[in-house]
């Protein structure tokens, strides 16, 4: 057991973010020092080349917490599910 406390979060990826990372979803233990969406992205970028590639340009990535759009300065709070995806292109 590590002393550093962590929380578990369900991560989901869509479109080319999913393709670059190589999985559609995963459950991760995230250090509690991570407060905002931007912190989480910075941390994910340390998790391997595929994450670095997916988040190379974080400004273009869109995020949803518990299936609601948020901006990257928002705190993760009690969010259970965090999704990352490119700007949407439906319609």
């Amino acid at each position: 057991m590590s002393n550093a406390s962590t929380s578990t979060v369900q991560l989901r990826y869509f479109a080319w973010v999913r393709e670059k990372i190589g999985v559609a979803d995963e459950i991760r233990s995230v250090p509690d020092s991570i407060i905002t969406v931007a912190d989480l992205i910075d941390w994910l970028k340390t998790q391997g080349a595929e994450y670095q590639a997916a988040f190379a340009n974080p400004g273009i990535i869109r995020t949803a917490i518990d299936q609601k759009h948020v901006t990257n300065d928002v705190a993760l709070g009690d969010g259970k599910e965090v999704a990352f995806f490119p700007p949407v292109t439906g319609g």
Binding site: A15, W16, A64, F85, P86, P87, V88, T89, G90, G91
Partner: peptide
């Protein structure tokens, strides 16, 4: 409804060209 759907509804299009090339549509 269409204007909001276009910018908020989480859909993504990937186009495959006749040449076989496939690319995600950018917004």
């Amino acid at each position: 409804i269409m204007d909001f759907l276009k910018s908020d509804a989480p859909f993504w299009k990937k186009e495959t060209l006749a040449s076989g090339e496939a690319e995600w549509v950018s917004c």
